[in-house]
Write a protein that binds this DNA or RNA. Structure first.
Length: 562
RNA sequence: GCCUCCGUAGCUCAGUGGAUAGAGCAACGGCCUUCUAAUCCGUUGGUCGCAGGUUCGAAUCCUGCCGGGGGCACCA
């Protein structure tokens, strides 16, 4: 009996009661059907409140026109008759507290082991084709801490959405057109030629390194620069860009972050077969829809029709397209490529973009509620010190990986809600105690593996499974946690909040450690191996499996030993 | 000024309208003859920023204040 099955049974029972009681009037009037979402059970904090609790009677009492406790009592009588339910009691203002048979709860251990990697995966988002854009850092320098949170979070969101059945494409938008690229090119060329840096050059040692690389790659650069400076600039800029982009991709792979598509902004500016660029085509399409006008010699889009606080401009006075024009064309590209929901993961410093991005979705004829989601995340602090270019304390992703390792960094960055401020505490992340949550969880996994190895050596195997033997309170607790997992994954996907996975794993790890301290898998002092030990081995392995599955959703490894 | 996020234990933070608001750390006190004591157990610790409102019920939803972060370009 899983919580989901319990919720299904409750929903059916409640629907029956409503139709008997209300003589179907609710349904005839188009009243709401009862779904398992209405009767979802939760794990009570207090053990005396049973294994699972439902507040459905309180929710529906008014609609049924009954007293909550009376309704709860009628539901309780019927759910108690269900196979696998030991007790159902009404408590407080109308809670239904349900206790399962030990055998029914214990079945979970076998189910988890048998389903393996698939345990926790669901189908709540099947059929959804989602574009998830994140990081999208300019290819004019290395990734730094400012990008790192979105890399970890975005990749984990993607994994969670996929676990719920969605078809997700991770996308990185490369701003490889425009003045920043030119500035980058001039900086690198000067470095390559050993010249003084230009007035507005990019700072940083990496520019010098790129300059040396470019010089090696293009030995003819000095001669060329003397003869045709613009040509030399083009070549140097292009070489530096390709090199920097490759390094970004490399860093991301080492961070276990995978993108399916790297989308170049240039392709939006370049003319296609019909002679027009995607940006021009996009403006044309929006013009046909009546959303574009000209004023003061510039082309404008009436984003205020879709809730933006001011209209936006597509061309600057000199006729060059704005960054926003490319954004609009890019949005249409995503739409044309068949994506339903387009998710943008942006830092809080970009929150002013929500209005205009949403407006473009509206102007494109999309549903601004369902087809576009802009997730705004708070910025990261390092040991309490705000990150800023001016203060010169930018930390590169590569440095962080070397210092802390990918696992600790990814886990820490994914364990907080995106809209919560987060600071990176290097000392804590390097510690090997409960102080460090990633360690706690990984250690619990390693411990399940150690038990498994020791069990094999002691002759305890999984040849028997009798779930009715799993009656210790720490076992009931642990089984409850295992049963919760699929619901946690579904919730994390629905809310785009992978931190729920991390928090869950920490609780699971705690429940496992408590169980380990109370219940032996391997008989003590050479005593005989009994079915209880064999059954507990299933439970041990089930916990290891769920920790592996959960850590995988966070892009974190589950070591066999620490 | 407008928009937005945040304010919960000494610290860092969870908490999808439900029961006595939780975790880790810190502080104090316990358990090693061990399937690794890197774990575990106990105690201490709260005006959920403030004030109203909504309802059977509010840390959670609404309004207004207070305090803090971020944003309000024909920049990229």
């Amino acid at each position: 009996m899983t919580p989901q099955e319990l919720a299904d049974r409750l929903a059916r029972i409640l629907a029956d009661i409503i139709s008997e009681h209300g003589r179907g009037s609710d349904r005839d009037a188009g009243g709401p059907d009862v779904t398992s979402a209405d009767t979802a059970v939760e794990r009570p904090k207090n053990r005396e409140h049973g294994d699972w609790a439902s507040n459905a009677a309180m929710k529906f009492a008014k609609r049924v026109g009954a007293n909550p406790r009376e309704l709860a009592q009628r539901i309780a009588e019927r759910i108690e008759a269900v196979d696998g339910v030991a007790r159902a009691e009404v408590a407080g203002p109308g809670f239904i507290n349900i206790t399962l048979d030990a055998a029914s709860a214990g079945e979970t251990a076998r189910r988890v082991v048998e389903q393996g990697d698939a345990y926790g995966r669901g189908d709540s988002l099947v059929g959804q084709r989602i574009n998830l854009e994140f990081v999208s850092a300019n290819p004019t320098g290395p990734l730094h801490l400012g990008h790192t949170r979105w890399a970890a979070l975005g990749d984990s969101i993607s994994r969670v959405l996929r676990a719920a059945g969605a078809d997700v494409v991770n996308e990185y938008y490369i701003n490889d057109a425009g003045s920043q690229m030119n500035k980058f090119g001039r900086s690198v060329l000067a470095a390559a030629l050993g010249e003084d840096a230009p007035e507005d050059a990019y700072p940083g040692e990496y520019i010098q390194q790129l300059g040396r690389r470019v010089r090696e790659q293009l030995p003819e650069l000095p001669e060329l620069a003397a003869a045709d400076r613009d040509r030399a600039l083009d070549l140097a800029q292009e070489a530096a860009y390709q090199r920097q982009l490759a390094e970004i991709k490399d860093s991301l792979e080492r961070f276990n972050v995978h993108f399916d598509v790297y989308f170049s902004e240039r392709t939006l500016h370049a003319a296609e077969a019909d002679g027009t660029s995607p940006i021009e085509a996009a403006i044309g399409r929006l013009r046909e829809q009546g959303h574009v006008y000209e004023e003061d010699g510039a082309i404008w889009v009436r984003t205020t029709d879709f809730g933006d606080d001011k209209d936006r401009v597509f061309t600057r006075g000199n006729g060059v397209f704005t960054y926003f024009a490319a954004d609009a064309a890019y949005y249409l590209s995503k739409k044309d490529r068949g994506f339903g929901e387009k998710i943008y993961l942006l830092g809080a410093d970009h929150h002013g973009y929500i209005g205009r991005l949403t407006a473009i979705a509206g102007a494109a004829g999309d549903d601004v509620e369902a087809d576009i989601t802009v997730l705004i995340g708070q910025l990261v602090n390092l040991n309490g010190a705000r990150l800023s270019k001016r203060a010169g304390n930018i930390v590169e992703l590569d440095d962080l990986l070397e210092w802390l390792g990918s696992d600790a960094l990814r886990y820490w960055l994914a364990r907080y809600p995106a809209d919560s401020p987060l600071s990176l505490d290097g000392e804590k992340l390097r510690s090997r105690t409960n102080d460090n949550p990633v360690f706690t969880v990984q250690y619990a996994h390693a411990r399940t593996r150690a038990v498994d190895r020791n069990a094999a050596a002691a002759g305890v195997d999984r040849s028997a499974f009798d779930p009715s033997l799993l009656t210790h309170e720490t076992e009931t607790e642990l089984l409850g946690r295992l049963q919760e997992y699929p619901g946690i994954v579904a919730g994390a996907a629905e809310l785009r909040e992978p931190h729920r996975i991390a928090r869950y794993l920490e609780e699971l790890a705690g429940a496992f450690h408590r169980w380990y301290d109370n219940c032996r898998v391997i008989p003590q002092g050479g005593a005989a191996v009994e079915d209880l030990h064999r059954t507990r081995l299933w439970l041990n392995d089930a916990v290891g499996q769920v920790i592996r599955n959960g850590l995988d959703l966070l892009g974190v490894s589950a070591p066999e030993r620490l």
